[in-house]
Design a protein around this nucleic acid. Sequence first.
DNA 1: TCTGGGGTCCTAGGACCC
DNA 2: TCTGGGGTCCTAGGACCC
Length: 382
Amino acid sequence: MAPPRPAPRRWIAHLDMDAFYASVELLRYPDLRGQPVVIGGGRRHQPETDAEGRRHYALLGDYTGRGVITTATYAARDLGVHSGMGLMKAALRAPQAVLLPTDFERYRLYSRRFKAAVAEIAPVIEDRGIDEIYIDLTEVPGAQEAVGHDPHGGVRALAQEIKNNVRAATGLSCSVGLTPNKLLSKIASDLDKPDGLCLLTADDIAERIWPLPVRRINGIGPKAGAKLEGLGIGTIGELARAEPGGLIERFGRSYGAWLHQAAHGRDERTVVTHHEPVSLSRETTFERDLHARRDRETLGTVFTQLARQVAADLQRKGYVGRTIGIKLRFEDFRTVTRDQTITAPTADAQAIRQAAGLCLKRVDLSQRIRLLGVRVANLSRA
DNA sequence: TCTGGGGTCCTAGGACCC
DNA sequence: TCTGGGGTCCTAGGACCC
């Protein structure tokens, strides 16, 4: 009888594409390499090629209108602009930066390519959106082996191989965090950006994780971060030293206990390879805030359009939904939602439009409207 | 000149049922 | 003649993430 084998050491990687949208655009416009470039806004600033074949780009400084930066190249970040920043504000800081429109179709193409390149080496992948994934390397051959004096050389080599394969398939660089769990890997992938490979074990937590601000933990956002700051807790190490009882008192039983675990780098979540969608939605922010009465016609047209888009999305993906909802954002940025559950699940544009219309009647429309959205939830397979 | 679009999960109260 | 108590569904809002 063979002796029982020890459980393999768990290795989870988090892979994050470097400045993904911007990097995809640089493949298409290599003359922009090294320059400050931001991606964002509508479709009205497409580069143009003149008779001599020279390309002309829109400049951030010339932009007017709504919208935010979705991605900025590292050169642009050096000028103080970053994703999420309003374009008009960014234009003041970096007027000479090149502005390119977003081309989601192209990013999705490269997304599929890099994920396929990873899957050739390690098939257990969890999708976390267009530009990042978790990978379970535990069972990949070689992951548990030492190489020379490096006890984790095997898994390190696998991560490097994944990076190489992504670059070969896409021409793009990525950063990888490699640790025993998702929480730590997510933090680690950020530590050596761009083109990084950061391997950490539990022994590294005190030195590498604890000095970082609490906001680096995935799940601590602006609100919780500010609240912790108010308690004199700025770093993950300070959070780790905080009394769990006190955290539970202030943040609730579930979140408080999680904060304590997270600060100690403890996370048992598995890599989930398949997800059924919970809801599908479409929304749009208007160029100018619309008035419920004066802009009734425009509003109605957009509303119908959104319902059609959601219906098309549902049909394309093969789902029907029972809960139809709307979302409005007013000029003061206040957001309200209304929804309604119907008896027969649907993916029909008219049925969605009608139910959404009933939802809209339940909202006080005295303020001007900035955003309108339509959502279908409670999904099941058609 | 503020703040996109697409999601997930959690909480909390009320309805309703057994 | 005195309000128990669970469980589930629905709705609204909020925090957070990519």
